[in-house]
Every structure is written in structure tokens, then in C-alpha cells.
Computed example of a mutant assay.
Amino acid sequence: MRYSPAPMLDISKIRAITLDLDDTLWPIWPTIAKAESTLAAWLVQRAPVAAALVADAETRLALREHVVRTRPEMAHDMSFQRRELIRLALHRSNEDTRLAEPAFEVFLAQRMKVELYADALPALVFLAQRFPLVAVSNGNADVARVGIGSHFHASVSAHQLGVGKPDPRIFHAAAGTAGVAADEVLHVGDDAALDVLGALGAGMQTVWVNRSDDAWTHDREPHETVASLNELCELLEAAPVRR
């Protein structure tokens, strides 16, 4: 059920929409699990000791934490973290670290094979006919490789910009790609802190995509909450077309 916490959404002000990707347009963890399984299978044939390391969830987490701890300036870059995690596993296994790059490409290719939520593609078609859409993500999904790039005016990622959500700079950069001011943007995403609070801090209107009926636990509230992207489209049916 959609509800409208204060402040109310002003659809007349919306001139562009920014969209989160992971867990907004598709579920991320099944995608990552398949990519990690594909990576492990590839490594088994070429670096079996490292394959065992990256296949173990606890060890994989420890490797990632080591990468972030030793290279904190790259904490925003998911691709860097994954590549270096693989390189570290190869190094600790006394196996060929030159395999890190092709191994990462195997992981990344599978990571792009997402399964969209049933409401995602119809929503993208509806929204893209009305507003410039800009993808805003902390992850390393590429809308073109995923197969939905034609619906987007632009995309901005933490990897490209050097900062991620909730930093206001990534939201302002996204607004800039659409040629509008931040207060003319509606940001849509599933993460209460990264998406909603981040976009509010950047001066945007926000819609929280709450597919799991979670409770809101923060002082500042989204302008609107929806349980699906179908509800988002219903909410914006009366908005002026900005294409």
C-alpha cells in the first residue's frame, strides 16, 4: 500500500528522474551469487587454490576487508575491490596473479546478466517517455550491458565519479547530466540511507521503493513510498511530460 508521509511530493516540479539500479530494478544478491559461482568455476580450471578461497564466503569477506583496509581511497569502487580480492587470493595461493584481470571480466560478464523485477521494464518504458532518466549507482552494473540502456538519458556511478551515495556530489552530478537543478529531480531507490537520505541531503524529492514492507526508522522521511514500480508510475501519471 502506498502512503504519503510529509513532505508531500510535488510532481509539478519534476523535470528528471534519477534511478537506483540494484534492488530497485532487479534483486542484486541472486545476481552476485551466480557471478561468484561462475568465477569460482572458471578459477578451478586455472587456479584451484585461489578458487577455493573465493568460493568460501567467510574467506571472501576477509579478503574484501583487507582490500578496503589497505586501499581506503578505493572503497567506493566495487570493480576495484572485486579485482583486487581476486588478485589477493591468487597471491596468497602462490598462483598466477596475471589471472586477476580475465577472472574479473568473467565475474563482471555474469554480473550483468540480471533478472529484472516484473514491474521494471514496463516502468522504464513509461518513465522514459515522460522524463530524462539517469541511473545512479554505487555498484558496477552498466545499463547498456544489462540491456536497458536505451531507456536512460545518462548514468552516473561511484566508479566513474570517485564518490558514491549518499554523498550529495553524485546526486548533483546526475542532475547535471540531465541539465536540471537538484530540486527539479525525483530520485527513486530502495535504500533508505543511501538513496532517500542521500537524495534529500542533495535537495531532491524522493520516492522510497519498499518492496518488503519494511518500517521507516529515520527522522527525515521520503516524499512518497511505493511497494512497486507500478505504484510509482500511477503516482506520476498526472505529471507534465518533460521529454
Rank of each mutant, 00 (worst) to 15 (best):
M1S: 13
P5Q: 05
D10P: 01
D10V: 01
I14C: 02
R15S: 09
R15V: 00
I17C: 04
L19C: 02
D20E: 03
D20T: 04
L21E: 00
L21D: 01
L21V: 05
D22L: 08
D22I: 02
D22A: 15
D23R: 11
W26M: 06
I28V: 14
I28E: 09
K34R: 14
A35M: 08
A40K: 13
A41N: 10
V44H: 06
R46F: 09
A47W: 00
A51H: 00
A51C: 07
A55K: 11
A62Q: 11
L63S: 06
H66Y: 03
V67K: 01
V68G: 00
V68P: 00
R69M: 09
R71Q: 09
S79F: 00
R82T: 10
L88K: 12
L90G: 12
H91M: 13
H91T: 14
N94Q: 15
T97K: 11
L108A: 15
L108E: 12
A109L: 13
M112N: 14
V114R: 07
Y117L: 10
D119G: 09
A120H: 05
P122K: 12
V125Q: 15
Q129C: 10
R130K: 15
L133F: 12
G139P: 07
D142Y: 08
V143F: 05
A144Y: 10
A144T: 14
G149F: 10
F152K: 13
V156R: 08
S157N: 04
H159D: 04
H159Q: 14
H159C: 03
Q160K: 11
G162L: 08
G162N: 13
G164T: 03
P168W: 01
P168R: 13
F171E: 06
F171P: 03
H172C: 05
A174V: 09
G176N: 12
G176I: 02
A182V: 10
D183C: 08
E184K: 11
G189H: 02
G189S: 08
D190R: 09
D190H: 13
A192E: 03
A193F: 07
L194C: 11
D195M: 09
D195V: 03
G198V: 03
A199Q: 06
L200F: 07
G201K: 04
A202K: 10
G203I: 02
M204I: 02
Q205I: 04
Q205L: 03
T206P: 02
V209Q: 03
N210K: 07
R211Y: 05
S212N: 10
D214Y: 02
A215G: 10
H218M: 13
H218G: 08
D219R: 15
E224S: 14
E224H: 14
T225H: 05
L229V: 06
A239Y: 06
P240V: 02
R242M: 13
R242W: 01
R242V: 05
